[in-house]
Design a protein around this nucleic acid. Structure first.
Lengths: 356, 356
DNA sequence: ATGAAAGCGCTAACAA
DNA sequence: TTGTTAGCGCTTTCAT
């Protein structure tokens, strides 16, 4: 352990501007006590109308903005929440955080957002950084099933809810998507279209939601017949492209491709065209995660739409419940996905007709 | 004005968990004063090695995590920075914030991120919410040229740097892209390919960076001949698609389309195929903002790549300078974009050959 | 209904 | 080198 409980980097921080008036300035300008100012602004105790009016105009004139840090210190009530995602620059996590922010805002919370970079060590370190601000609670999208962040949150006694990926071990509040059900539906759709050999392409197998997706696919294959092959294509676009390239060059071709994340979909499109394979003629393609561009390409791509906004809302709702003192056992919320059927997964016969 | 200087929503906040040990707990466990603990952890004054060791083990044993809110209150040094973007769920802003976060982290700062939703009123309100946490500085992507947030930041004396869009009025530190130069280059590229009638499609004309792009395009047209037509297609995907649909149905067709943002590019692709127009045969297409999918579609899309990570880094660098006390006049940093040339903007003759 | 005073966790000034 | 004390801006007793 690098061992420092404080910041990762030395804080070359500088003196904050002290132009901002304090509650005392407001109080003296309004000719009341600081307690009264506080009571007016927080509507805590009733205050005579004229005093309240004087306070309000003092606030206005001075441009007073309360210091919530100081407020939290004294009141022990925090109106900040922490968010820990693998990478805020990833559109999926961005959308999640956007929904979270909207929900949090409605409840009067601000969000401190940090990225773990997909590294469990960073995950724990960044959570510690979050806790230095004493958030009322934390929402985290774990970078793997181990959820390194859990221990430190538990030790600190800060409510935490996980989202998207499913941590192993001790149960914890979780909001995720019904990976199994939708993957099964995808496979059923492909098999119903006459496909027999499904190739599932995923970044990493170490992530639980991916395994649920594979399990769902396998369940359908077992029920309806056909074969399932799984290939790990890594986490970067060029890598996934190369892996699929190699696979297409190597063995007998599948007649359906199910890409389990966006990067894989991109790599697949590239590798398919490099090998002169047509979609859906030679191979049907279905991607996990629907994105706006998928219906402007040709053929338009069949995709699984994840209810990412709803995930954000639900995660926030769970967190609020915990912050509010809910001590019931951890719950798992599973949200249904939608299969958006487009031309890339047309049944074999229809695809053949179209290309003829 | 709804008039409350505090939160937008009533804070139904709850008592923070008080399981966390304070610096006093550490001090007494280590048998030293709180000042010594502080000095050890912040490496401020030199402390005898044995005392330091005792402090460190006490920290370890108790799982002590310093309260940076309290620290800031006393030291008047803030290690938090505010970020205000139109919409964190937008991939472009997400990428920007990601870069900003990486840079901030290296300097020991955490980020409080809020979205204005593209609404100037919200912009000001959200900035006030940020200031409530006494950030050392603020980075903002304004929602329009008026930059409603400016006044409140200035009044509070908090350093602020703007990014991406160019606020009018009083100069302010700004990091943006060289819109004019790259747009000119795009137009030159199109004209050199034998195109004569460029249609530039934008969301809104009220945003300065868009106008710079149009000016750049116009400059090339003036120099090299040809015509420029500008069309406003709104901010949503369906709207942009409908507007372009109408335009294609109405008048003489352009032979080049320059979409000034991502939504417009998506809408264009849709409208083009709806009208049976081929790219680049009938119309060349160039989009502002390069995205991963653009080179897997057919034809691959020519696009302007914005150095969004670098924008984040530069913005942070400017902010750090200001936080560090730099009082020199505001500067404008302009970053160069790159034109990624792909098949969608092939010269007329090559395009004709390809389709023949 | 209002004010005075104490104190949240921390660090800066001052003593020793 | 270390400890003691005061006080950051706020809210919360406790008086009045």
């Amino acid at each position: 352990m690098g061992g420092c409980i404080f910041r990762d980097a030395p804080a070359h921080v500088s003196v904050t501007n002290n132009k901002m008036p304090s509650i005392r300035a407001v109080a003296s300008r309004a000719g009341v006590s600081t307690a009264t100012v506080s009571n007016v602004l927080n509507a805590r105790r009733s205050v005579a109308p004229d005093l309240a009016a004087r306070v309000h105009s003092a606030v206005q004139e001075l441009g007073y903005i309360a210091d919530l840090g100081a407020s939290r210190l004294r009141s022990r009530k925090s109106s900040i929440a922490g968010v820990l995602v693998p990478d805020i620059a990833n559109p999926f996590f961005g959308a999640f955080v956007g929904a979270l922010e909207a929900a949090a805002r409605r409840d009067g919370y601000d969000l401190l957002i940090v990225s773990s970079g997909g590294d469990p060590v960073q995950e724990a370190a960044r959570l510690r950084a979050l806790l230095t601000w004493r958030p009322a609670g934390v929402v985290v999208i774990p970078c793997d099933d181990s959820l390194a962040a859990r221990d430190v949150a538990i030790a600190a006694g800060v409510p935490m809810v996980a989202a998207d990926r499913i941590p192993s071990g001790e149960p914890i509040d979780l909001v995720a998507v019904d990976n199994f059900a939708i993957a099964k539906q995808v496979a059923e759709h492909l098999l119903a279209g006459g496909r027999r050999h499904i190739l599932a392409a995923t970044g990493h197998l170490a992530i639980s939601n991916v395994n649920e997706r594979i399990d769902g696919t396998r369940a359908a294959v077992r029920e309806l017949g056909g074969t399932l092959e799984v290939i790990e294509v890594g986490l970067s676009y060029p890598e996934s492209r190369a892996r699929l390239d190699a696979r297409f060059a190597a063995g007998p071709l599948p007649d359906a491709l199910f890409t389990l994340n966006n990067l894989a979909t991109l790599g697949a499109l590239d590798a398919l065209s490099a090998h002169g394979l047509t979609v859906p003629g030679d191979i049907a393609l279905v991607g996990f995660d629907d994105e706006p561009w998928m219906h402007v390409v040709s053929p338009p791509l069949t995709a699984v739409r994840q209810p990412v906004e709803q995930m954000g809302f639900e995660a926030w709702a769970r967190l609020m419940a915990r912050i509010g003192g809910d001590v019931s056992p951890p719950v798992q919320v599973r949200l249904p996905c939608t299969l958006i059927t487009r031309a890339s997964s047309l049944p074999i016969d229809a695809a053949a007709m179209a290309s003829a």
